[in-house]
Amino acid sequence: MAKELQGLDQQKLKDYWSYNIRLTTMTMVIWFVVTYVAIFFAPELDKIVIAGFPMGYYMGAQGSLIVFVILIFNYSNKMNKADKDYGVEEEEE
C-alpha cells in the first residue's frame, strides 16, 4: 500500500473523494451553462443591451471568462479547505 494511504480512515477518504466529485460536477455544470448554453441562446440574449453591449456578445467576450476565473479560484479554495477537513493535507516540510 502506498505510504501516504497508510493510517488514513477509509471512510474519510471516500467522503473526501465524493465531496470532490460533487464540487467538480457543480463546477462543470456552471462551465457548461456560461459557454455552451450562452452560445446556444446568443440571439435571444442579444435582445438585452446594457451599456451598448448586447448580452449574447458580452457573454462570449467577457462574461464567461469572468465566470471561469471565479470558478477556478472557488474550486481551489474549497478543495484546499477540504484537504484539512478530511485530514489528507500535505505535510509541512
Partner: peptide, 13 residues
C-alpha cells in the same frame, strides 16, 4: 490502483 488512490490526495506530495 493504490497509485491512483495516492494521486487523488495531496498528502505525501
Amino acid at each position: 490502483q493504490d497509485f491512483v488512490e495516492s494521486v487523488r490526495i495531496p498528502r505525501g506530495a
